[in-house]
Amino acid sequence: MSSQISTPETVLQQLHWRYATKKFDSTKKIPNDIWNALEQSMVLAPSSFGLQPWKFIVVRNPEIRQQLLPHSWGQAQVVDASHLVVFTIKQDINGDDVERYLERMAEVQQVPVDNLQKFGAVVKGFIEKPPYPLNIDEWSIRQLYIALGQFMTSAAMLGIDTCPMEGLMPSKYDEVLGLAAQGYKTAVACPAGYRAADDHSAERPKVRFKTEDVVQYVD
Rank of each mutant, 00 (worst) to 15 (best):
M1H: 09
S3E: 15
S6N: 08
E9D: 15
E9S: 15
T10P: 08
V11P: 02
V11R: 08
L15M: 15
H16Y: 09
W17V: 07
R18L: 04
A20G: 14
A20M: 03
T21A: 14
K22A: 09
K23S: 12
F24S: 02
F24C: 03
D25A: 10
D25Y: 02
T27E: 13
P31T: 05
P31M: 00
L38K: 03
L38V: 04
S41P: 03
L44K: 12
A45W: 01
S48N: 07
F49E: 00
G50W: 03
G50Q: 04
L51K: 00
P53N: 12
K55P: 12
F56C: 12
F56R: 05
F56T: 11
I57H: 15
V58S: 06
V58Y: 01
V59N: 04
V59S: 08
P62I: 06
I64D: 03
R65Q: 14
L69F: 03
S72Y: 00
S72G: 06
Q75R: 09
A76Q: 13
Q77K: 11
Q77G: 12
A81E: 00
V85T: 13
V86N: 02
Q91S: 14
D96L: 07
D97R: 03
D97S: 09
E99M: 11
L102H: 06
R104S: 10
A106K: 07
E107F: 15
Q110H: 12
P112M: 04
V113M: 01
V113F: 01
D114W: 04
L116E: 00
Q117M: 12
F119I: 11
G120I: 04
G120N: 04
V122K: 13
V123I: 14
K124G: 00
P130A: 07
P130I: 05
P133M: 01
N135Q: 12
I136F: 06
E138F: 04
W139F: 14
R142M: 06
Q143I: 07
L148V: 10
L148N: 07
M152A: 14
T153K: 09
T153S: 15
T153P: 03
A155V: 02
A156E: 02
A156C: 14
M157W: 02
M157A: 14
M157L: 13
D161N: 10
D161P: 10
D161W: 02
T162L: 03
P164F: 03
P164W: 00
M165E: 02
M165C: 10
L168R: 04
P170E: 02
D174F: 12
L177K: 01
L177Q: 01
G178T: 08
G178V: 08
G178N: 08
L179C: 08
L179T: 11
A180V: 09
A181N: 12
Q182R: 14
G183E: 03
V188W: 02
Y194A: 05
R195G: 09
R195P: 08
A196H: 06
A197V: 09
D198W: 05
D198L: 05
H200W: 07
S201F: 13
S201T: 11
R204W: 09
R204N: 13
K206R: 13
K206N: 05
V207K: 11
R208V: 05
T211Q: 15
V215G: 05
V218N: 11
D219S: 10
